[in-house]
Simulated scan of single mutants.
Amino acid sequence: MRASLASCWRVPDSSRREAGTQAGLCRAAAMTVQTRAELRKEREKTGLFWWSGQLASWFALFVVLALIAVMIVIPKLGGATAYTVLTGSMRPEFPPGSLIVVRPADTEEIRIGDVVTYQLKSGEPEVVTHRIAAVSSSLSGEIQFTLRGDANNTDDDPVRPEQIRGKLWYSMPLLGFINSAISGQQRTWLTWAAAGGLLAYSMIMFAGAWRENQRKERT
């Protein structure tokens, strides 16, 4: 037996029994329509497009947070500095655009084969990242490092310990282009924006789960 919602607005017959029967059918029809709507919403929330959207949003959030962590957060926490490779002197391992992160190292820790970043002139900002080719001592007993780019045929000028900025910690291809485009102030903004975005997204997900739980309890 079927009853439509439209029939709920009809004036009942003179018989009280028939009116009660019709009212019951109307309530059943309303519940059926409501149940169908809820089932449709459930299917929408568990369908392929819904899951695809959820996975895409989580993946995008993960990528953004990972980039910020690799370029900003981890170097800062580790007392390291991020640089961008601008030339091809360290090809093929570090092509132009690579992000390299170096952190301070004692002179005794530097060995032949290590990749280090050093100042061309002590105290000046211009730096070069090459590989240690030899370690020697001057006539005065001072340690000197000989470096060479992997793609170069000649050694660099001798480097003194005070010129060394640090030893390679880790590197990432292509991220150097992004690193070069971000200023110091922008790094701070990005860190706070990422933290705020993650908090807001977590609150939205929690609120959605809470509303869904409340709806299920009412039904």
Results as ranks from 00 to 15, higher is better:
G88H: 06
S136Q: 03
Q185M: 06
I182V: 15
K167A: 13
E124K: 09
E162Y: 07
F62E: 07
R36D: 03
Y83R: 01
E42K: 07
I204E: 08
A134V: 02
G208S: 05
S98I: 03
S183H: 09
M71F: 02
D150R: 08
S138Y: 03
L65G: 12
L174A: 12
G47W: 11
S15L: 03
I143A: 05
I100C: 13
G123W: 00
E93P: 02
A209H: 15
I143W: 01
S202L: 15
E108I: 07
I204P: 01
G47H: 08
W169L: 12
L77G: 14
I182S: 09
P125D: 11
L77C: 10
Y83F: 15
T87N: 13
E212W: 02
Y201V: 06
P96D: 01
P92K: 12
M90P: 09
I110H: 03
Q163I: 02
S98W: 05
L147C: 13
E142S: 13
P75Q: 06
Q54R: 14
S14Q: 11
Y118E: 00
P92G: 10
S89F: 08
A3S: 07
N153T: 12
L190E: 09
S89H: 07
W192G: 04
N152G: 01
A60C: 13
M1F: 01
P104W: 02
A29G: 10
M203T: 10
G20S: 13
G47N: 14
P12C: 01
L39C: 06
T46K: 15
F49D: 00
D157R: 15
I182G: 09
A56H: 07
S52E: 04
I132L: 00
A28L: 12
T81G: 05
T35H: 14
L139I: 06
K45I: 02
Q163L: 06
I110Y: 04
S57K: 10
P92D: 07
E93F: 08
I110R: 03
M1H: 02
L5H: 07
N179K: 07
Y118G: 00
T107S: 10
A151I: 02
G197R: 02
S52P: 02
R40A: 13
M205H: 14
R148Q: 07
D155C: 07
R10G: 05
V127A: 00
E212S: 05
D114Y: 06
F206M: 07
A134P: 01
G184S: 08
F206A: 14
G149W: 00
W210G: 02
A6C: 01
G24I: 05
L55F: 12
T219C: 10
P95L: 06
A30N: 08
V64I: 15
L99T: 01
I178A: 15
A105S: 12
G20P: 03
V159C: 04
I74V: 15
R187V: 05
I204H: 08
R218Q: 11
S136A: 09
